[in-house]
Nucleic acid binder design. Sequence first.
DNA 1: CGGTGGGTTGAGGTATTTCAAGGCTCGTGG
DNA 2: CCACGAGCCTTGAAATACCTCAACCCACCG
Lengths: 226, 226
Amino acid sequence: MFTNLNTDPGRKPRLVGELGALSHGRVSSGEFKYSAGMEIFGDTEPADYIYQVIAGAVRIHKLMADGRRQIGAFHLAGDIFGLENGDLHRFTAEAIVDTRVRLIRRESLERVANTDTAIIRSLLKMTSENLAHAENHMLLLGRKTSLERVAAFLLEMHRRLTPEGAIALPMNRRDIADYLGITLETVSRALSVLRKNGLLKFLGQTQRQIVVVDPAGLARLTDNPE
Amino acid sequence: MFTNLNTDPGRKPRLVGELGALSHGRVSSGEFKYSAGMEIFGDTEPADYIYQVIAGAVRIHKLMADGRRQIGAFHLAGDIFGLENGDLHRFTAEAIVDTRVRLIRRESLERVANTDTAIIRSLLKMTSENLAHAENHMLLLGRKTSLERVAAFLLEMHRRLTPEGAIALPMNRRDIADYLGITLETVSRALSVLRKNGLLKFLGQTQRQIVVVDPAGLARLTDNPE
DNA sequence: CGGTGGGTTGAGGTATTTCAAGGCTCGTGG
DNA sequence: CCACGAGCCTTGAAATACCTCAACCCACCG
């Protein structure tokens, strides 16, 4: 019943509002499916396309030589990702679950942008939103405790994929850990603490857990600007 | 002799290249001086101006309710800061040392941007550069050891304010610590280790230290994408 | 000169990591 | 249709990187 909360294709794609030209057919775009775990693009690859999640979930990350990983963001239905100013991608992007994605040729976007300032403004707005997210995430990574990080994560997911109140998390504990800069065991322990304090419930024991949170209670634990 | 390396007003301001209109006098701008420690703008204040460092150094930070601080970036001669997409600043900005700053009315920039796509493109480019910096910093804050963080910091400063090879750091240990998400004692210990390993020299014991680094050696210690 | 604002270093404490074991779910193939 | 392995999650116990607290030093300034 709750299984597809997060991948609901009925959700209104945000891009339509953001980049009017796309819906006017002035920019060439295609659609593509990636199954869980597939790489969408790699770090330092040429950024020939930008992407929009139609349904599913995507993680973007950086990897260190010894395997340490930092996930910079999760992208959910409606989100744009892979937008770069330079010629190369700065993250690797992978589908977390089976995911449908719209592809837009960058070249075609550039062409339209030359004559249409609204398009560039949209790109600027999206880049600014990514920047604001990264800035808040720096505070989390630099200064918050593990409990605060996990509370902030749940609040973010609550805000982004819950009209009703139940969250079906598409990502596993390792993904959450690499997003929050802690280990998967610490994530698990923090979730247990929150559950014991009644700020969190697991509905059903099915692999991808469905979660109900108490946003006001969690907000008291973190210092979230969002 | 090295005292003012970092605040050299002779350095070519980067803005001239970035925002041509400013040098054409089509955007109203003024100049202002802030002494060390002064606040330039505060978190959640209206973003009526954008700023360019002419000489000196600025830190921008977020503060938690209990005083924990995360510095998002240091801005040096030539850098633009305070550029927001929304109406409010998302950081507090303070002068680290005595600093000269150029102010540009946002309203006046907006007006020009309506007719000049080059301006919006410049804003997009600058925002993207800030984003790229934040993305790299997330990896540092989430996954690097204290030694790797300090090495990365020194490399960044080396790249940004050293044509010659000596760095006069404008910020103190607490600022560095809050930028790197560690404590000032840990910064100090890491610097001592680097010094013992010959990757770093202090020139002169004067309050604001001058530092000479071995970039290749430091690079081996971190995983820096920059 | 005495105080203040850095900075370094040591010793001990602690949050988080690491290592390890065990349980649950689900898909697959005998 | 059941057995089994793989993936995921949780929990415990021990190790450790970093933090906290504290002492001390030095440079600078009124």
